[in-house]
Each structure stands twice: as C-alpha cells, then as structure tokens.
Design a protein around this nucleic acid. Sequence first.
DNA 1: AGCTAAATGCAACTAAGTTGCAAGTAAAAA
DNA 2: TTTTTACTTGCAACTTAGTTGCATTTAGCT
Lengths: 140, 140
Amino acid sequence: MKPQTKKTIDDLLGSAKLRRTGPRRTVLEILMDAKRPQTVDEIMTAMSRGCANKVTVYRTLESLVVAGLVHRAFVHKRAEHFELADRCTEAQCHPHFTCTSCGKTFCLTDLSLPLIKGLKKGFVFHKQQVRVDGLCPACS
Amino acid sequence: MKPQTKKTIDDLLGSAKLRRTGPRRTVLEILMDAKRPQTVDEIMTAMSRGCANKVTVYRTLESLVVAGLVHRAFVHKRAEHFELADRCTEAQCHPHFTCTSCGKTFCLTDLSLPLIKGLKKGFVFHKQQVRVDGLCPACS
DNA sequence: AGCTAAATGCAACTAAGTTGCAAGTAAAAA
DNA sequence: TTTTTACTTGCAACTTAGTTGCATTTAGCT
Ligand SMILES: [Mn+2]
Ligand SMILES: [Mn+2]
Ligand SMILES: [Zn+2]
Ligand SMILES: [Zn+2]
C-alpha cells in the first residue's frame, strides 16, 4: 500500500470517528482497489493473509455503512454487494449494469437518471437506485 | 374467487402453456389480490388452507417467472419479493418505494423514469429497475 | 380408461448472515 | 508512560431463505 493511500484511509476513518483497526483499514483498502461492488466472500478472499474473521468483516462493513463511507450497492445471487460511497450523490448512487449471461456487474459511474417526480402526498423522497441488466461486451 | 377471476387465471396459465394445477392457481390468485410484492412466506400464509409445500411455492413461482407472468420485483431483508408482471413494460418495471422507517413497500405504478442513455459500446440494454426509499405517509 | 411427462411433497441440505460472550486493543484519562 | 475503559474482534452456535434428490401423484393427452 502506498503511504498516500494509508493516510487517506486513516483520514477517512478518523473523520468518520471510527477507531483505526486492522480489519477496517484492510476492508477499506480492498474496496478502494475494487472496480466493482464486493461480496463478503470476495473481501475475505482478497484479505487472504491479514485475514479477519467472517463475523468481523460483516461488522466492519456495517460500521462503515453506518458511518456513510460504504454503501450496500445491491443484492445478487443472495449476496449483498458493498462498494465505497464516493461516486454517489446524496440522492442517487450511480447505476449498476449486470450482465444476465455472465453475471458480472459494471459501475455506470458516469451515467445517471433524473430524480423521480410525482410521489404522492405524504411520501418523503430520500434516494433512488437504478439497476440495469442486459449483455456485457464480452457476452453480446 | 369470482368465476371471472378463475377464468382469467386459467387463461393466463393456458396462454403460458403451463398446466392448470392447484398451487399455480392459488399463487396467481394471491398475487392478483396483493397490492404489494409478496415473499414466499407471505404467500404461504395467504394460502393457509389449500396450503402447498414451501418447495412447491418456490417452484411454482419459478415457473411463473420463466413464463413471464410474474416478476422478481426486488430483494428486501434477504427475501425475494414477487409480483404480477402486468403493469410493467418490456424495458422497465414500475418503480418501488420502500419506507426506511416501517419497511413497507409501495408500487409506483403510475410513475416512471426515462430509459438510461449512454451505455458504452458493446453493452446491450434489456431492462432497468428503479427503487426509491424514503418515508411513507404513515411515517413522515 | 390408460399413458406419460410434468408437478408435487418430503427430508435433507446449502450458504449468507446474525448473536452471545469471552478476550483483546485503540484511544482517552490519569 | 501507565492505567482505564469502551469499543472491537474471534469463536461457536444459530437462523433462515432458498435448493436438491427422489419417490409419488396428477394434468392433459390418446
Ligand atoms: Mn458501483
Ligand atoms: Mn410493484
Ligand atoms: Zn457478460
Ligand atoms: Zn413507513
């Protein structure tokens, strides 16, 4: 890990008022390196040595989600997928494209849709999420 | 059940080339009556008497999904939620609103967003789904 | 009525995620 | 720097949505 990255990670944890622990640093680093949302299983594999307990990874992710550093992006094949919360606005995360053939997911970080209009009286809008499916370049 | 409804259900199954069995008729009727997407658990409860086996309900839903009569609307609290496939277009199901306070979900059948534009070369668009969260009238 | 492929039911299984509790440690206090 | 304490971790046991294999039943056909 570059010292620069380490600084960023510790700053992130500090500004979120979270203790700088090994598992938190490792999980954050893995999510920073990942180019798509990760399952707990994928994160565990990426930890290989420096490997924390599965329960710790779940609790680490939960603390990062509560702190707003990480988002639960979507559920696919019964597994929650996590990603860094940067590249999302308050009202809308970037859309995700999942290939129905190979199952891979792509972050559409440079695309977005207008916010939904016309919610009935009494409904308070917080956020919208968009999922797209189809075929990826490798499968089409 | 009104004889009219029975006719409709049998027509649906017939046009989907599915055998008209008890569980299929019951599950379809439950989904027609439901005003929000249902979990297998909710469907089982609604079946009370006439109750089919859990595995049968899963397999029934799968056959209805493959036939295009039913959609997997979303996953909430680790459970798949199913609904009738009417009130959706080929390219987009109606959006769903989930209240972050009480957990209830509302079908926004009369709202929609434009289809996403600008997919990179090689990607083939099939369908998009939109989920909104916030507070429902009872919780806001 | 008899045939056959499709559907059902049961039991056992899989796997993502959770919980309780004892032990360890980051960070604040002394 | 040492002590203190609340927060964090690890382990084992658990929960639960969903799946699989196989024997039995049945819808739809002839
Ligand atoms: Mn993403
Ligand atoms: Mn709906
Ligand atoms: Zn693909
Ligand atoms: Zn509510």
